[in-house]
Design a protein around this nucleic acid. Sequence first.
DNA 1: ACCCAGGGTCATA
DNA 2: TATGACCATGGG
Length: 224
Amino acid sequence: MTLRRVFHLLLRSYGPQHWWPGDSPFEVMVGAILTQNTAWGNVEKAIHHLRANDALSPEAITASLPGVLAGWIRPAGYFNVKTARLQNFCRWYLAAGAFDALQRLNTSTLRQRLLAVNGVGPETADDMLLYAFERPVFVIDAYTRRLLLRLGLAHGEESYDKLRHAFEQQLGATRRQVALFNEYHALIVMHAKVRCRKTPLCRGCCLLRNCPHGRHEVGTARGD
DNA sequence: ACCCAGGGTCATA
DNA sequence: TATGACCATGGG
């Protein structure tokens, strides 16, 4: 079972996902922070509050009182932590010259700059790189790890970057791969949301943490 | 009542 | 470097 074949099976099962739901690159980045360990539906409510209060801009977010901003993003959970992260990120974003200046940096440099921002870890940075800056960077999340584990393509000890590099090397990492990476990550998330359906990939197992099927061997998947 | 969600940071050993 | 605690709302 190759990573390319996994992609085609997922695409055949679920169809194109058309991520990321966001009107602008900046909105995508806000969403990337708000969705940390949080259901997307809750993030949408928070973003709606920001927009309704004309606060969906780096200037407005940095200018907001923390208590007020926390109230707006409340549905997204961890609102005190995320208030600090949003304001911290926006201060950095404005100081760096906003989107156009950042977009001129090469991917490796931009990734390092993003990771240096407190509150932005590997997955959040890669969400931004792929879905806001449209760079060929593969996003690894908990679902990706579980999927690889259950397909016998990973053991569970691999680092974030090792898995990311595996996807990028086997699928390629040029500009042409941006659309592929975009769909692939979205399809993995979709696959996790579909609970215990029979699809070519999961064979009846879902990707929930405690899915009883998760312990099952995937059988001949490795030799496919 | 429980489990989960499109993680990351910080303190501790 | 490697765990553990912590953050917190909302849907199934």
